[in-house]
Amino acid sequence: MKTGPTRVIPPFAWVTSAGGLVIALSGLVDALTSTGDVFGSAWTWGWVAITVVLATVPLAFGDRLVREIGVVGSSVFFAVTSLQMALSTSAVASVNNLVLYPMVACYLGWFYPRAVSRVVTAAAFAMSGAALAVNTHDRVFITWVNLVLASTFCLEAAGYLRARLDREITTDPLTGVLNRSGLDDRIDVELGRAARSGAPLTVGIIDLDGFKQVNDEHGHAAGDRLLVAFAAALRDQTRPYDTVARIGGDEFLVMMPDTAASQAGDFFERLRAATRDPWSYGLAEAVLVDSARTIRARADLELYAQKVSRRRARDARADPPVP
């Protein structure tokens, strides 16, 4: 019996939905405990109902949920709560709105780039601060200051941890260059950019010659030193916007935007002259139908052909023909 594909709900959708439910539950508590404040009754019940409905949207969309929805939702939450703070006659209601700001700041810091999360959170501070300036409540200002500090900490801590995790996931621990994680996605992005702009894009794959022999004769520590030194040479010689990755034991990939294969060939020959140990490479210039898989496969074929050619040349030098 055939079954349909398994529906995937990514962590982003789960966390976004959970955040919406927390906000809804907080509003429900406000509605149940409000004491005559017009913005603690009908307004709050309406906000709870809307938030519950919106909290189901991420789960309904799953992996089709666009990332912008979290920024929009957070911005709406900050705007609505600031409006309620400006108009409410209850100091308690104002504080209840503020206490969720660190949670939202943490969410933004984890899931979004630093610039985006900082701008949205700063806007929240500005709106809520203006609301308190318009509708002053005794002692709420000190609470606002403390929660601004707590939100800033949550924002920066989440952003730092996410950036560090991303580096650890995508960086080869030995050489410090990228690893295979996310590399194909990056290549596909550059392929799309090249297709739109008409600019050339070349991918090169490098394989160190005789690397196994180095490990066998001198030990793995010597092999590691060779890899580290070669990766450092690649970083030094390539441009800031080139991509350098270690994709195997002794294999490296270099992606060079705005570079034709002939230009990349010249660069690789200069690189060969600047490095001590022998290596082979294969190049593939992007065409419109390319994907990350196909352009890497063509570079691999060129690499294999060069290694065979270099091996035959070495064998011919070692065993000259008998006259």
Results as ranks from 00 to 15, higher is better:
Ala123Phe: 09
Ser197Asn: 02
Phe78Asp: 02
Val29Leu: 09
Asp166Tyr: 02
Thr171Asn: 07
Ala286Trp: 00
Val104Asp: 06
Ala231Ile: 03
Lys307Trp: 05
Ala115Lys: 11
Val52Pro: 01
Asp30Phe: 07
Ala273Trp: 01
Gln84Ser: 11
Pro5Val: 12
Ala264Pro: 03
Ile205Ser: 01
Phe141Ser: 12
Leu183Trp: 05
Gly4Pro: 01
Glu156Phe: 08
Ser128Gly: 13
Thr175Ala: 07
Thr81Val: 14
Thr259Val: 04
Asn135Arg: 15
Val140Trp: 01
Asp172Phe: 03
Asp63Met: 14
Asp224Leu: 03
Val80Met: 13
Ser94Glu: 05
Thr3Pro: 01
Leu108Ala: 05
Val92Leu: 13
Met1Asp: 08
Val308Ala: 14
Arg64Gln: 05
Asp290Pro: 12
Ala222Thr: 10
Asp236Arg: 13
Arg296His: 06
Gln263Ala: 15
Val177Ala: 02
Thr275Tyr: 12
Val287Gly: 05
Val254Met: 11
Val15Lys: 06
Asn97Pro: 01
Pro278Glu: 13
Ala297Glu: 15
Leu183Phe: 08
Val48Tyr: 11
Asp216Ile: 04
Gly192Lys: 08
Ser75Glu: 00
Thr3Phe: 11
Leu253Tyr: 01
Arg162Ile: 02
Asp138Ala: 15
Thr51Glu: 07
Ser94Phe: 01
Asp266Gly: 12
Ser291Cys: 10
Asn179His: 01
Ser88Ala: 06
Ala13Trp: 02
Val177Ile: 09
Gly27Thr: 03
Leu132Tyr: 03
Leu183Asp: 02
Lys212Met: 13
Asp319Val: 07
Leu174Gly: 07
Tyr160Gly: 06
Ala199Pro: 04
Val228His: 07
Gly282Arg: 10
Ala284Tyr: 11
Lys2Trp: 08
Leu83Cys: 15
Ile206Cys: 05
Val72Gly: 04
Arg314Glu: 15
Ala60Asp: 01
Glu68Val: 14
Arg139Met: 13
Glu269Lys: 05
Glu168Asp: 12
Leu59Gln: 07
Ile247Pro: 01
Pro320Arg: 12
Leu28Cys: 03
Ala60Gly: 10
Met85Val: 15
Val57Asn: 04
His218Lys: 12
Ala122Ile: 10
Ser17Gly: 14
Asp188Gly: 00
Ala55His: 00
Val244Glu: 05
Val116Leu: 12
Ala86Arg: 07
Val120Lys: 03
Ala299Ser: 10
Ala60Cys: 09
Arg225Pro: 00
Leu226Arg: 15
Ser34Gln: 07
Ala229Ser: 09
Phe61Pro: 04
Glu217Arg: 14
Gly19Met: 13
Val289Asp: 14
Arg164His: 14
Asp216Trp: 03
Pro58Glu: 01
Ala284Glu: 00
Ile50Gln: 06
Asp224Ala: 06
Gly223Val: 00
Leu201Met: 14
Arg118Asn: 10
Leu201Asn: 09
Ser88Glu: 02
Arg167Thr: 14
Phe111Gly: 05
Asp315Arg: 14
Ala55Cys: 08
Arg311Phe: 02
Ala79Met: 10
Gly248Tyr: 05
Val116Asn: 01
Ser88Met: 05
